[in-house]
């Protein structure tokens, strides 16, 4: 059943985010009007934060009535949005990260729109049984926050490619307010990747514990190691393992690191896609299995 009380704030937040994006583009293009065009973006992002907070608290206190914050996919997306929106708001006020919001806001809009879909059409609560509940909550939490880090890293990577392209083509030289430096963006990618790597590692470990120690039949089955989800997750983990050492590996520095950050996010999203596809197949094939664990 559609969760309208969650959907409406999410729809409003998506619209506010799109409005903020438009304003941010205007701000970057009309650099001399910086002072007059900054506050509407901040107001819009503030509104997104408030709406996400409202929806998250509402779901926690009214819908779930439990301390477990992530009980459905929409909760995870809300959690990411709730963390990402203030993070973008913060970067707006940092001159050294000028322009970053332009690359992060489309991600936020995408996640919010995804959240709308997850409440209106594809709403499914996770099955948190008593044995794996703690592990699952931990697994889901670190996975979603890890996804947030990966998204930040990918946004940084996309911006790196954009800024580097402009520097190489010598476009926009002499801008009153230049975009974030390549070094800042590389640092951002590195930090996001490092945090993402740690969280993905925790996610993999907790996932491993869940599939190996649970006496219930997991969605992955006994041959969990041959699942595309596990392979994709391992591939993403390796990408981030390389990425966090990028300053030591000269061959993957610069553009290649930026592409790796984007590739990492794509792999993480592909892992999610594999999970969804796998779950649907499992549900179709074994609809009588009562406790299929909805992993991330």
């Amino acid at each position: 059943m559609p969760e309208l009380s969650t959907s409406i704030p999410l729809i409003l937040a998506t619209l506010a985010c799109i409005a903020a994006m438009v304003l941010a583009v205007r701000r970057v293009r009309q650099l001399d009007e910086l002072a007059t065009t900054l506050w509407p973006i901040q107001a819009m992002l503030g509104l997104v934060t408030v709406l996400c907070l409202f929806a998250f608290v509402y779901r926690l206190t009214i819908v779930h009535k439990a301390w477990v914050p992530v009980q459905a996919h929409v909760d995870g997306l809300l959690l990411i949005s709730l963390l990402l929106a203030p993070a973008i708001l913060y970067t707006q006020s940092r001159p050294r990260l000028f322009g970053f919001s332009l690359f992060a806001m489309p991600l936020l809009a995408l996640i919010l729109a995804w959240g709308v879909c997850a409440t209106l059409w594809t709403y499914r609560p996770f099955n948190l049984d008593s044995f794996t509940q703690a592990w699952t909550v931990f697994h889901l939490a670190v996975t979603y926050v890890g996804l947030l880090c990966c998204a930040m890293g990918a946004a940084g990577g996309a911006m790196y490619l954009f800024v580097q392209g402009r520097l190489k083509s010598k476009a926009g030289l002499g801008q009153v307010n230049p975009m974030a430096s390549l070094e800042t963006l590389e640092t951002l990618i590195l930090r996001a990747a490092t945090l993402g790597f740690v969280l993905l590692t925790l996610s993999l470990i907790s996932g491993l514990v869940m599939v190996t120690q649970s006496d219930h039949t997991s969605s992955l089955g006994k041959a969990w190691w041959s699942s595309p989800k596990v392979w994709l997750a391992a591939a993403a983990w390796i990408v981030y393992a390389v990425l966090i050492n990028v300053r030591s590996f000269s061959t993957v520095r610069g553009r290649r690191a930026a592409w790796l950050a984007i590739a990492g996010l794509v792999l993480v999203l592909a892992t999610y896609g594999a999970v969804e596809a796998l779950d649907r197949t499992q549900q179709d094939d074994t609809s009588n299995v009562p406790h299929a664990v909805e992993a991330d």
């Binding site: 520097l167 002499g174 430096s181 070094e183 640092t187």
Partner: peptide
């Protein structure tokens, strides 16, 4: 200013 497009500090 050009150098600051590449380096942070």
């Amino acid at each position: 200013a050009f150098a600051k497009n590449i380096f942070d500090h």
